[in-house]
């Protein structure tokens, strides 16, 4: 906690409300389905694997769900031989 935040301390409940709304909207949409991010990753990897051999251990997926935009980041380390 910085000195500044001592003075500008916001109430925590509105933050909680916002976080929950975002999360629950996502989880309700998901009910009964697999996570879209996981499906996307599988399919994207399958497409790439058609052209380049990829090591599953060298694939990193990061996700950040926002209220306006979400980002899905798939980081694939290519084998040296496959350099474009």
């Amino acid at each position: 906690m910085s000195l500044l935040s001592l003075f500008t301390r916001k109430r925590s409940a509105p933050v909680a409300r916002e976080r929950l709304q975002l999360l629950l909207a996502h989880e309700r949409a998901l009910e009964g389905h697999t996570d879209l991010a996981a499906i996307l990753q599988e399919e994207i990897l399958a497409v790439i694997a058609k052209h380049i051999p990829i090591d599953r251990d060298k694939v990193n997926v990061k996700l950040d769900r926002g209220s306006q935009v979400s980002t899905l980041e798939i980081d694939i380390q290519m084998p040296p031989a496959a350099k474009a």
Partner: peptide, 26 residues
């Protein structure tokens, strides 16, 4: 995840790792 503020970043979970659908590092 919620208490730690990471709820928006969850892609895979413990069950995925146990069942072999994802690597631990992922």
């Amino acid at each position: 995840d919620l208490v730690m503020g990471a709820e928006r970043r969850v892609v895979y979970d413990l069950v995925n790792v146990v069942q072999g659908d994802a690597k631990l590092a992922q």
